[in-house]
Simulated scan of single mutants.
Amino acid sequence: MEKQNTKSEMLSYLKIIVVTAIVVLGCKQFLFAPIKVQGASMFPTYHNQDIIIMSKVSKINRFDQIIFQSPVEDRYYIKRVIGLPGDSVEMKDDILYVNGQAYPEDYVNRQTDNPNQLRITEDFTLEQLTNETKVPEGMYFVLGDNRLKSADSRAYGLISEDAILGESKVVLYPFSHFHIGTK
Rank of each mutant, 00 (worst) to 15 (best):
M1V: 02
E2L: 13
K3E: 11
N5Q: 11
T6P: 00
K7I: 15
K7Y: 07
E9T: 11
M10D: 09
S12C: 14
S12H: 13
Y13C: 08
K15F: 13
I17K: 03
I17G: 01
T20E: 00
V24I: 15
V24N: 02
L25C: 10
K28L: 08
Q29C: 07
A33Y: 00
A33T: 03
Q38A: 11
Q38L: 12
G39S: 07
A40I: 13
F43P: 02
F43W: 10
F43L: 12
P44M: 08
Y46W: 09
N48S: 14
Q49F: 03
I52C: 09
M54H: 04
S55F: 05
K59M: 10
K59W: 06
I60C: 04
R62T: 03
R62C: 04
Q69F: 01
S70K: 14
V72R: 07
E73S: 11
D74P: 08
R75I: 02
Y76T: 04
Y77K: 06
I78R: 04
I78W: 03
R80K: 06
R80W: 01
R80G: 02
V81D: 06
G83H: 09
L84H: 10
P85N: 14
G86M: 14
D87T: 08
V89I: 10
M91A: 02
D93W: 04
D94C: 02
I95W: 00
L96P: 00
Y97Q: 10
V98R: 12
G100N: 13
Q101T: 15
Q101N: 15
Y103S: 05
Y103A: 10
Y103K: 10
E105G: 00
D106G: 09
D106A: 04
Y107G: 01
V108R: 05
R110H: 07
T112I: 12
D113M: 12
Q117M: 13
L118G: 11
I120P: 02
I120L: 12
E122N: 10
E122Y: 05
D123W: 10
T125C: 14
L126P: 01
Q128K: 15
Q128R: 11
L129I: 08
T130I: 10
E132K: 09
E132T: 02
T133W: 06
K134C: 00
K134S: 03
P136Q: 12
G138F: 11
M139P: 00
M139N: 07
F141D: 04
V142Y: 02
G144P: 04
D145F: 00
D145G: 02
R147F: 02
K149T: 06
S150G: 08
D152T: 01
R154K: 15
Y156T: 04
Y156L: 09
G157Y: 03
L158E: 04
I159H: 04
I159W: 03
D162M: 11
A163I: 07
A163L: 15
G166H: 05
L172A: 14
L172F: 11
Y173E: 09
S176V: 11
H177F: 05
H179K: 15
H179L: 13
I180V: 14
G181L: 13
T182Y: 05
